[in-house]
Design a protein around this nucleic acid. Structure first.
Length: 599
DNA sequence: GCCGTTTTCGGCCCGACTGTTTTCAGTCG
């Protein structure tokens, strides 16, 4: 086994041999227990305890599974005796008998029903008990046959809503959010690069282009021993099933259902293959046409002279930049390759210097235990400093967001005081900005008074309810909020949850115009679920002079790291560090928070 | 099931909206 020479591979083998369980798997089991208990009509507080437990496991800053295995979980809020024992069992045996017994009562496919908008535990329980609906396929059949509409509590409109939700799901079948594949992609890449017979390796496709969702992962490697590399690739422990395996390419399914493809080429072919498999298709079409204009044909392996058309001598190509140079252009970053103006800019030398993760100096819009976050103010501040940030903006929910334990006026004032006090201790080398994520109410008014808002360093305004307004009304509602001089930023503009809930109806160009007029910053919510405002709008915003804030919307210390997804989206939206206010250092960012406002 | 604690059990997160009802249950945030 060639891979044995590689530290990364040994590491993966080691992981695969441990009897324990990853934190993600353990958190998922706790979540599923909560769902099944809901179906069984259990005590709602017990259910919540399992949900909270899942969140704690998911977001605990530290190796919680290791702690569980060593029986050192006492004192962690949300983990009591029962969950402690269950986590110990999972960490040491890799399974949980309680869960196995519980799930044996229901079909495995039942869980997918919870992903359907409009279906909750009660309706799912009724569908299962009355009609034996245990999967999405069953559900579709029951809705289309009219059976579902006859159930008590169901009706025509309910069924229409369910069918609409199913159609949305179908449209996005086999797509994955970037956070669902990110760690996997890096681990596979690391393993490939560590292979002694591999000289170069890269992830291609929509992942490399920074898309918000992907439907597979495409890997490319340069090697002189393709068959050997392919054989070792399909044997990696994170793969569950080999779909196809040949001399130069292979396709496999990873454990979470993502298809991963590997193609092996020679080092000479590598830049061409990298360019070709990165795409997009639309970008490639233009690339090939441009090559033809030079008298060359371009494919995934090389430039070749077109017969009968004496073009200039084909230059040597060592990397992708050489290909662009040969075609008379600057190097185009993968994120920009959508045939959306990048060729003109590359020809004229006008490509933007895209923002980098290391350009960020701080993070706005984060939650603490005061509302629905998992970490305290101090823990969040510590974590931000660990990430090299100079400042941290807190923006807990406002009082109307009951579900998120939104702060009352009194509690917010107390938090402001607490922040001021902490800042004294930082002595200027770090600062917490006191803010709020204030709800935009149905009529566009805000959930806190102007007087209270004026006491804050900044304010994010977001829509959290009444999503079904007509577009014009929703747009007016949001613009009214932006017109409030205390509103510094607009949070998650469309409320979309990728692959789960479509955006509500809102006129984005009108919002961008209003942002420009009122000096309101628009958030790029970096949560992989949202990535909202969408990258497709940022060039317009930038043209209008609207600034961006890449906001992790962190609900835990780990959540702060989501800024990396936001940076990917910002790069895809042509943004540079000059366009993003949280690239400004402490001492300058304060001015950006005031610009156009009366703070 | 967790938490807090005057250690033994009571309280735990509330309101709007929708659709099916005819006074309310379920879902969502």
């Amino acid at each position: 086994m060639v891979f044995l020479a590689s530290g990364a591979f040994v590491f993966w083998i080691f992981l695969a041999m441990l009897p324990g369980m990853t934190r993600e798997a353990a958190a998922q089991i706790l979540e599923r227990i909560a769902l099944l208990l809901e179906l069984k009509g259990e005590n709602p507080f017990k259910i919540r305890a399992y949900k909270t437990g899942a969140e704690v496991v998911e977001s605990y800053p530290g190796d919680i599974m290791q702690l569980a295995a060593e029986q050192k979980l006492s004192g962690i809020k949300g983990i009591g005796d029962a969950l402690r024992d269950k986590l110990y069992e999972m960490a040491t045996t890799g399974k949980l008998e309680f869960f196995d017994n519980l799930r044996a009562e229901f079909p495995e496919t039942l869980f997918e029903l919870f992903e359907v908008q409009g279906l909750g535990p009660k309706k799912i329980a009724a569908l299962y008990a009355e009609l034996g609906v245990g999967s999405i396929a069953d559900l579709k059949r029951a809705c289309e046959s009219g059976e579902a509409a006859k159930l008590s509590g169901f009706g025509g409109k309910t069924v229409v809503k369910i069918l609409e939700s199913l159609a949305f799901r179908d449209e996005h079948a086999s797509e994955f959010r970037v956070d669902q594949v990110y760690g996997l992609a890096l681990a596979i890449l690391e393993a490939l690069r560590a292979h002694p017979a591999v000289s170069r390796a890269e992830v291609c496709g929509s992942f490399r282009r920074g898309k918000e969702t992907v439907h597979d992962l495409d890997f490319l490697c340069a090697t002189k021993k393709p068959e050997e590399v392919i054989a070792d690739f399909v044997g990696l422990p994170m793969f569950e099933k080999v779909i196809a395996q040949g001399g130069t390419k292979a396709s496999v399914y990873a454990a979470n259902g993502v298809q991963c493809d590997l193609r092996a080429v020679s080092s000479k072919e590598f830049p061409f293959a990298l360019n070709y498999f990165t795409g997009s298709k639309e970008h490639n079409v233009v690339m090939r046409q441009r090559a033809l204009d030079q008298g060359w044909s371009l494919n995934e392996y090389a430039f070749t002279p077109v017969e009968g058309k004496a073009g200039p001598v084909i230059p040597a190509v060592h990397d992708e930049a050489d290909i662009y140079r040969a075609l008379g252009m600057d190097y185009i970053e993968p994120e920009l390759r959508e045939n959306a103006g990048e060729f003109d800019a590359a020809e004229q030398g006008h490509l933007p210097h895209l923002i980098l993760l290391e350009n960020l100096r701080g993070v706005f819009h984060n939650h603490t235990t005061a509302s629905d976050g998992m970490a305290s103010l101090l823990e969040m501040a510590d974590a931000a400093q660990e990430l090299g940030m100079q400042y941290l903006g807190i923006a807990d929910h406002s009082k109307s967001s009951f579900q998120a334990n939104g702060l009352s006026e009194e509690r917010l004032r107390a938090q402001i005081a607490e922040i001021r006090e902490l800042n004294e201790k930082f002595e200027g080398h770090f600062r917490i900005f006191a803010g709020t994520e204030v709800d935009i109410l149905k009529d566009g008014s805000l959930d806190f008074s102007d007087e209270l808002l004026s006491e804050l360093d900044y304010c994010v305004a977001s829509v959290h309810n009444v999503f079904n307004l007509p577009e014009a009304e929703m747009t007016r509602r949001i613009i009214r909020a932006m017109e409030n001089p205390h509103v510094t930023m607009l949070g998650h503009v469309t409320g979309r949850l990728l692959l789960q809930r479509p955006a509500y109806a809102v006129n984005i160009p009108a919002i961008i115009d209003a942002a420009a007029e009122t000096g309101t910053i628009i958030e790029l919510n970096a949560s992989a679920w949202r990535l909202d405002m969408d990258w497709r709008w940022w060039r317009l915003a930038k043209e209008k002079g609207v600034k961006c804030s890449i906001n992790p919307d962190a609900h835990s210390t780990r959540g702060l790291e989501d800024v990396l997804y936001g940076v990917r989206a910002a790069r895809k939206g042509w943004l540079t560090k000059k366009d993003v206010i949280n690239c400004l250092p402490l001492g300058e960012v304060e001015k950006a928070l005031m610009k156009g406002k009366i703070r």
